[in-house]
Structures are given as C-alpha cells and as structure tokens.
Design a protein around this nucleic acid. Structure first.
Lengths: 118, 118
DNA sequence: TTGACATATTCCCATATGGGAATATAATTA
DNA sequence: TAATTATATTCCCATATGGGAATATGTCAA
C-alpha cells in the first residue's frame, strides 16, 4: 500500500507546505486563483491543482465571479488535527506540568475503549 | 518534485494514521516494539519502520533495555502543528464567533504575562 | 466572431511510499 | 556453542505525488 492520497483527509492535505501557505493567504480574505499565483510566485496550474486538493477535503470553498473563481477558507476540517495535537500540548507547555488533565482525558478515553472492545 | 518524504517534518510524519496511533499508545507510557506489535496487530517490520520515521522527526525517543528497545513520546515537534492550526480555531469554535471574544482572550493573556513578568 | 483573459485538466517523470516477505543484527539463554 | 528472542534492514511492488509543459474549457470584450 502506498502513502494515502493527499485528498484522504486534512492531515494529508496540509502536510504540503504550499497548501498551508495557500490557506494562510486565504484566511484573511477570499482571493482569485491569479491573486494566489502572484503572491506565491507559482505556476498557475500548480496553484489550481493545490486548490483542487484543498477543495476535495473541504478546506476551501469557491465562488464564481465572471471568469474568476474566488476561493476562501473553511477551517472546519482542521478540527480533528487540533483535537489530536492538543493532547500532546503538555510536551511544550509548562502550564500543564503540575496537574495533568490531558493524561486524565486520554486515560478516560482509553478506558472506555478497553471496556467497549477488549 | 514528488511529495516530501515523511521524515521531512512532523506534519508529514503524522499524516499517516498508524503513526498517530503509535504516538497515542506511547503517550501513556514507554513500550517495547513487540508491545506495539501486539496492540496494533501489525507486522513487526512495519512497526519498526514507522518508529524509524517517528525517530527521525524527533517524535519518539528510544531507550535500550537488554534486547528490547523502549520507545517513548517526545511531543515537542508537534508544537508547530498546534501553532499553525490554532489560527483556524475560530472556524469550528463558536466561542470565537464574536471578535470581542478573541480580543478578550488576547487581553487576558497579556495581563497574565504582565503579572508573571514576561 | 475573434481574440484575450482566467482557470482547470492532462500527460510526463523522478521519487518516496507502506505493506509483505525474507533476512540481518544483536542480546539472551540453554 | 547453538538456539531463541527482539529488533532493524533490505528488496519487491503498485500507487500517488508535485512540478513542468501543453492544452482544454469557459468567459468577457471589441
């Protein structure tokens, strides 16, 4: 089995730095494809292709305006990433050193998993 | 140019679900490779290969104990992911719907920073 | 209608993938 | 020493990649 397609989920889609860059630009306001081409200094087909990946995982929405397509961000598919990575926050955040709510939380999840199918 | 190697950074490393699963297991306590093999029900070589990727991006550390290698998590390389994705939090969090809320939070952070002299 | 502009798609290619299978290396035990 | 256990590495393969180049599609303007 090869690596999962980039369109599998947000995790895979945003592993590509260009696509994060695109989202970072679009998060401020909607942009046409050519706007992005100019800002990124990337060839237009590559931009369109990145946008397609982002579209397929729902991270951007398009609006038609004449011959332009105006893209904007929909950050909701990023929530699973945030949720997952949040569990590791204590690794770099001293605020979590004392009492460990995160581990408690993970433990609670694990316990319910153990109880449900093991 | 093909897709960036999985060992490029944490973004690429954790795009693979198996590797997230490994981290989720190791976050509770250190484990030997065979422990992981049993829990994941995956062939040993694949586990070792996933662990190598995680090692190369610094997400796990190893400790030798006889013929076993005990792996544990080091979540610090996940911080860039957390930082990046946090900027999109308002997309799914109703708490951020009103701009005032954001400003309040920023102000609160500033205040606590002032209080703890930073 | 024709030409210019905006965007999307297709084809090419070198490269890395993750799993399977076999094997190598290292440490322990009989 | 040889056998066993634990882990890592190597080889194979089907597949998707991201960029480049060329082309297709769609929309507007003269």
């Amino acid at each position: 089995m090869p690596r999962a397609p980039t369109t599998t989920d947000a995790f895979n889609a945003v592993a590509e730095p260009r696509r994060r860059q695109i989202l970072d630009i679009l998060v401020r306001r909607e942009r046409s494809v050519n706007d992005l081409v100019r800002v990124l200094r990337l060839a237009q087909p590559q931009v369109s292709k990145h946008l397609r990946v982002l579209r397929e995982v729902g991270l951007v929405k398009v609006r038609e305006d004449g011959r332009q397509r105006l893209y904007r961000v929909d950050g909701r598919p990023l929530k699973p990433i945030h949720t997952w990575v949040k569990h590791y926050e204590r690794a770099w955040n001293e605020r979590f050193d004392a009492l460990d709510e995160v581990l408690d939380e993970l433990k609670r999840e694990d316990d319910s998993n153990d109880a449900s199918h093991e």
